[in-house]
Design a protein around this nucleic acid. Structure first.
Lengths: 348, 348
DNA sequence: CTGAAAGCGCTTACAG
DNA sequence: CTGAAAGCGCTTACAG
C-alpha cells in the first residue's frame, strides 16, 4: 500500500534500514554518523523526496533559538521604530520557538560596535546587525560567522564582510528616486540644491548622496548641487545646516536630507517660510516627517518599512536555522515613496 | 512546583477538573459542552492565561483547511500576478495544513460572480473574493457568510456585504495620490486632463476617479478634467480612447488611467510622440508599465502589491480559522508609488 | 556510531 | 455531555 500523504521521517528510516534517530541526525546535519550510513539515508530521502515537517520539529524541540539584534542607540525615530517592531514580533517568535535579544550600541563608533558583535554569545543561532562599513566591524562580523553564527546586516550593509545577506533597500536607487522627485517637482526651475547627510561613513547615507547627485547631474543640468553637509543625524545640527544654506544661497530651490534630523530641517524651513517655497525630500516616515508631509512643508519622503525589514531578518535567520525555504519575493524590501495623499493610517 | 513554561491544555484540564478533550471543545468552540462546564474551563483558561500552541494543533490535526479564492478571468496582468502569487504560497500553505482552491470568473458579470460564490463548498474554511459591488454579489457573499464560511474581499470591496474584512488599498487615497503627482509633475502648466477607467461599476476604479478629481479640483484649479471614458480594461479600447483625447484636445497636458489597459495607452502615447509630452500616471506594476516607466513614457505608477495582498488574505483566513492573532501592521496594504528609479528588481 | 523509548501539546475517533 | 487512549512527525536524552 502506498501512503498517499507526504513521506515522514519514519518512512525514510524504513527505506534506509535505520532508526529514526539516525535519520534525524542526517537531516539536521548532526555529527556521529558513518559516511556510508549518511549516504544510505540521503538516498532514501531523495527517493521519497522527503521534506521534514517544521511543525513537528518545532513541537518536539524543547530549546528555543536565540537571535541577537544589534541596533543603534540614540533618539533616531526610525531606529526606535525598528526596536518597536521587534517587540511586536515577540508573539510570533514565541510561537516559532525563538526569542530575540535586542541590544543598542552607538553605530557611529566602530570600536563599540565591533565589541558588541564580539559579545554576541556563540550559542546564538543568528544575529542581525545594523552595520557600519568599517574594517573593525567587518572583522568582528567575520569572526562571528566563523564561529558558526548566521549573520545578516540590517538597513546599513557591510558588503565585503561574510554576512549571509543584507536586509534593506538599494540606497543608491533610493537617492536617485529622491533626485527624480526633486527634479520633477521643481518642474524646470533652475538654482542650487543642498544635501544634508548624517555621516558619509555610513554606507547607506553615502550611497543615497551618490545616487541623488548622479540623477540630478544627468537629468537636471540646470541645477547646481552644493557641497554635502554632515549632521550626525542630529536635529539641532541639521537645523543649523539647513538654515545656513537658506540664508547664504539666494538661489536655493531644493533641499535633500539623506540622513535623519528631519525635525531640524522642518524648523529651518518654517523659519524661512516667508521666502520662496523650497522643494524638500527626506527619508523615513516618522511622526515628524508625517506631520510635515500633511502640513505641506515636505514634498515627499523616501522610506523603508521597518516592520518589514525586522520581520524579514527574523524570517531569514529562522529559515536558515531550520533549513526551510522562504517566499523570495516577500523578502524584497521596497523603496517606498510617501506624499501627502498616500500616508498609511497611523503608525509609521 | 510552578511550571516555568507556558501553561498547556493539560494544565487547564487539571485546573478545571475536566479532561483534555473537554478543554479542546471549549477552546475551539466545538458543540456539546454543558454551559456550566464551559464556564469552569473558561475560568481556568483565564486564570492560567492559557494560549493554545498552534504548532501542536497543526500537527495533531489530520485534515487540511481549504480556502477558495475567486479571481477575475481575462488577460489582466495584475490579476495574473495575483494568481501567480497564490501559486508561490503553496509551500507555505502546505506547511500550515492548508490549501487554496483558485477559481476564475468574469468579474464584470455579477450573475456569474454570484454563481461562483454560491458554488463555494460550505465545507471550506474561508474565501477571498475580488468583488463587484452589486446587489447580487453582496447577497451571495452574505449567504456564504451565513453558512459559516469566513469571507474577505480582495482588491475590490463590497463594503455593505457581511464580509469580515477588505484586503486592499484605500482607492480614494490612491486616486488622490495620482492626482497629486500629476499636478506636481505638471508644475503649473494649465490645460485639460483626461481620465480613463475600466468600469465605473467597479468600486475601486470609481473611487480612484473620485479621489483624483477631488484633488485636482482642489489643488489645481487651472486644470480642466475631461469626461471619464470607460475601457473595460481592454488595451484596444484604452488605446482608442487615449488617441481620441489626444487628437481632439489640443490643450491636453496629462492622462490618468484608473483602470487596466496601460499597454494600449502606451501605444497611443507613442503614436502621439511628436506632439508636446503628456504627463501620464497609471496603476499597477506590470511588465508593460515597468517598461514604459523605464522608457520614460510613463511618469509614475500607483500600485498595490499582489503578493502582499494574497498573503495577507491567506494569513487572515488562516488566523481566524485557527483563532490566532495577527501582527496588525503587517496586514496594512500600502499604496505604492513607482517611478523610474525605485522599480523593484524583476517581477512586478 | 546507532537505536529504543519517552515526550512535545494538541486533536480525533470511539466509548460510555 | 464527557473522558481514556491513540496518534500527529519530529527531537532528546540515555543505553549500548
Amino acid at each position: 500500500m502506498e501512503d498517499p500523504s507526504r513521506p515522514t521521517l519514519v518512512d525514510v528510516a524504513r527505506a534506509a534500514g535505520v532508526s529514526r534517530a539516525t535519520v534525524d541526525r542526517v537531516v539536521n546535519g548532526r555529527p556521529n554518523v558513518r559516511p556510508g550510513t549518511v549516504a544510505r539515508v540521503r538516498a532514501a530521502m531523495a527517493k521519497l523526496s522527503y521534506r521534514p515537517d517544521p511543525l513537528a520539529a518545532g513541537l518536539a524541540r524543547r530549546a528555543r533559538r536565540r537571535f541577537c539584534f544589534i541596533l543603534p542607540s540614540g533618539r533616531n525615530a526610525f531606529m526606535a521604530d525598528l526596536a518597536g517592531e521587534i517587540g511586536a514580533m515577540s508573539d510570533w517568535l514565541d510561537r516559532n520557538r525563538a526569542v530575540i535579544d535586542c541590544r543598542k550600541v552607538d553605530v557611529f563608533d566602530p570600536v563599540a560596535l565591533a565589541a558588541a558583535i564580539d559579545a554576541v554569545e556563540r550559542s546564538a543561532s543568528g544575529a542581525a546587525i545594523v552595520a557600519l562599513d568599517h574594517p573593525l566591524v567587518r572583522a568582528a562580523i567575520d569572526r562571528l560567522v566563523a564561529d558558526g553564527v548566521e549573520v545578516v546586516t540590517l538597513v546599513s550593509d557591510a558588503p565585503t564582510s561574510r554576512r549571509a545577506q543584507f536586509v534593506g533597500i538599494d540606497n543608491s536607487a533610493a537617492g536617485r528616486t529622491a533626485g527624480l522627485l526633486v527634479g520633477r517637482f521643481l518642474g524646470g526651475r533652475a538654482g542650487s540644491v543642498g544635501i544634508l547627510v548624517g555621516s558619509l561613513a555610513l554606507r547607506d547615507h553615502m550611497e543615497r548622496c551618490f545616487g541623488f547627485s548622479q540623477l540630478i547631474g544627468r537629468d537636471h543640468p540646470h541645477l547646481t548641487i552644493l557641497p554635502i553637509v554632515e549632521t550626525r543625524d542630529d536635529d539641532a545640527l541639521a537645523e543649523a545646516a539647513a538654515s545656513q544654506m537658506i540664508a547664504e544661497r539666494a538661489d536655493l530651490v531644493a533641499l535633500y536630507n539623506a540622513g535623519a534630523g528631519n525635525a531640524g530641517v522642518a524648523a529651518a524651513l518654517a523659519a524661512a517660510a516667508s521666502e520662496a517655497r523650497l522643494v524638500f525630500v527626506g527619508h523615513e516616515l516618522t511622526p515628524a516627517s508625517r506631520a510635515e508631509l500633511l502640513g505641506g512643508r515636505f514634498d515627499a519622503v523616501i522610506a523603508q518599512n521597518a516592520g518589514h525589514e525586522v520581520r524579514s531578518a527574523a524570517r531569514r535567520l529562522l529559515a536558515s536555522a531550520a533549513g526551510e525555504a522562504l517566499i523570495d519575493e516577500q523578502e524584497r524590501i521596497r523603496i517606498d515613496i510617501f506624499v501627502r495623499e498616500n500616508l498609511p493610517e497611523s503608525a509609521g
